[in-house]
Design a protein around this nucleic acid. Structure first.
Lengths: 222, 222
DNA sequence: CGCTCTATTGAACCGCATCAACGAACGTGG
DNA sequence: CCACGTTCGTTGATGCGGTTCAATAGAGCG
C-alpha cells in the first residue's frame, strides 16, 4: 500500500510468499530510476527493502509526488501500456519484479494474480483518501496527516517514543502534500514547539504525542 | 473511466458486451443513493445511462467529491469489503450490477474479469492525474481542466459549438476540485467574459474556444 | 405567487506562496 | 583532515489567490 491517508487496517503483502517463488531480485542505488513516464510497462515491482518515489511533472516544472513506495508496496500498475509516473529510489532499494502478464492473465500464476488485484484495489482506496487530504485539508492538517500515516505504515511500536525515518526531502513532502517546502518546515516547527514531535536531525522525527498528532490531522484543534 | 484530468486516449467499456450477458439492470432515480460509505460491497456497477456522484465526508462536514461516474464507467471497487464512498445519482440512472466475485475469482467469467481489471487500472491512472490537479493547479486552471476533461469524455463532436450538460451543482464541482462554489462561479464567469465559453442556463455550457480552454487548463495563459 | 434553494457578485480577510536571508549538512578537492 | 562550495533546511517579511461573509439575483417547485 502506498503512503496516503488511509485508515490503517491494510496489510502489506507477505514478501515471503514471493520470495518462495524466487522471483528475480533487482537492486536500485539511491537516486537511481526504476522507470520514467512514457516507458513501456513490462514488469510490476514489489518493494522488498528501501523507499521509492513516484512523481509526475507538468511542462512548466510543477511537480506532484504521487506516492512513496515502502516495503510490501506493489508499484508500476499499467494503464494503456506505459508508465504514467517517474519512479526513483530515495535510498538503496531491493525489489522483486513480476512480469506484467501475471496481472492480466490469471492462468499464469493465479495466486500471485489475485495478490496483485487486491493490491490494485487497496491502491484505489488509498488514493481516494489522499484526495480528501489534497483537496480539503489545511497545511498543518496535511503535515500531521502525513506523519500519522507514516507512523501507521512504518512505525516501530516496540520503542517509545516512536521514531520515523524520513528518507524523502522536505520538497518531496511538499510536492506530495501540495505545499511548498517553506510551509512544510513551518508546520513541522509548529508541531515541534507544541511538543508533539521532536526533530532529530533532518531525516528523523520522534513522535512524542501520537493522539495529539492524530487530532491535528483531522483538524480537531488549531 | 472517471471524470478526471486524464489525457484522453481511454475508451469506455462496451456496454453491449455486458448487455449480451443480460446482467440485471438497476434503475436509480435522481437523488437516490446506490450505496453508502461502510456498506458491504456485494456488487460492482457499470453505468449504462445517467451520472452518479461518489463522495466522502469528514466528521466536520468537509466534503470531497471523489469522482463523477458517466456511462461506461465502472464503480464500486472494494477494498477491505466495504465501500469507502457514498454514491448517489445526479439524474435518473441505469446500471448493470456485477457480482463482486467476478472481480476476485477469474474463473467465474474470465472475459468480464479481465474487463474489470482493466477498468481498475484505468482508474488508478486517472486518479494520478487528478492528484496533479488537486495539488498543483490554480483555481482557474482547475475549472478549465474540469471542462476540458468533461469535453473529452462526453462532448458531442458532431455539433459546433460543443455543448456540455452539467448535471452536478456548482458546489459538487467545487468539492471535486477542492474549491468553494464562489470560486467556481468566478472562474466560470471569467471564462465567459473571455468568450471561451457561453453559459446557457445553470446546467449547460457551450465551449466556444476549445484550444483556449485547453491552454488555460495547463496554465499557459491566465 | 410566494417560498426555498442555488447561483452570482462584491468586499474584506487570511492562509499559504513568494521572495529573501541565513544556517546547517554534505561532498569535493586540495 | 580541513577549506571550500553547493545544496538543503529554516526562519522572517511581504503579497496575493482563494476563502469567508454578505447581499442580490435567478431557478425550481408547491
Amino acid at each position: 500500500m502506498y503512503v496516503t491517508i488511509s485508515h490503517g487496517n491494510a496489510q502489506p503483502f507477505a514478501p515471503s510468499k514471493l520470495a518462495a517463488r524466487k522471483t528475480p531480485l533487482k537492486t536500485l542505488k539511491k537516486g537511481a530510476y526504476l522507470y520514467f513516464e512514457g516507458d513501456d510497462v513490462t514488469h510490476l515491482f514489489i518493494i522488498e527493502t528501501g523507499v521509492v518515489r513516484l512523481t509526475r511533472v507538468l511542462e512548466d516544472g510543477r511537480r506532484q509526488v504521487i506516492a512513496f513506495g515502502y516495503p510490501g508496496d506493489i508499484i508500476g500498475f499499467p494503464a494503456q501500456d506505459t508508465h504514467h509516473t517517474d519512479c526513483d529510489a530515495l535510498c538503496d532499494t531491493k525489489l522483486c519484479s513480476i512480469p506484467r502478464k501475471v496481472l492480466e492473465d490469471s492462468s499464469a500464476d493465479p495466486d500471485l494474480h489475485s495478490v496483485l488485484i487486491q493490491a490494485a484495489l487497496q491502491e484505489i482506496s488509498a488514493m481516494q483518501d489522499h484526495f480528501m487530504m489534497l483537496g480539503r485539508k489545511s497545511a498543518p492538517e496535511k503535515v500531521a496527516s502525513f506523519l500519522t500515516v507514516l507512523l501507521e505504515r512504518i512505525g516501530d511500536t516496540s520503542v517509545e517514543p516512536q521514531v520515523l525515518a524520513l528518507p524523502m526531502s522536505r520538497s518531496d513532502i511538499a510536492d506530495f502534500l501540495g505545499l511548498t517546502t517553506e510551509t512544510v518546515c513551518r508546520c513541522l516547527t509548529a508541531l515541534r514547539k507544541a511538543e508533539i514531535i521532536r526533530i532529530d536531525g533532518i531525516s528523523k522525527v520522534a513522535v512524542l504525542d501520537q493522539s495529539a498528532l492524530a487530532q491535528r490531522a483531522d483538524g480537531q484543534l488549531n
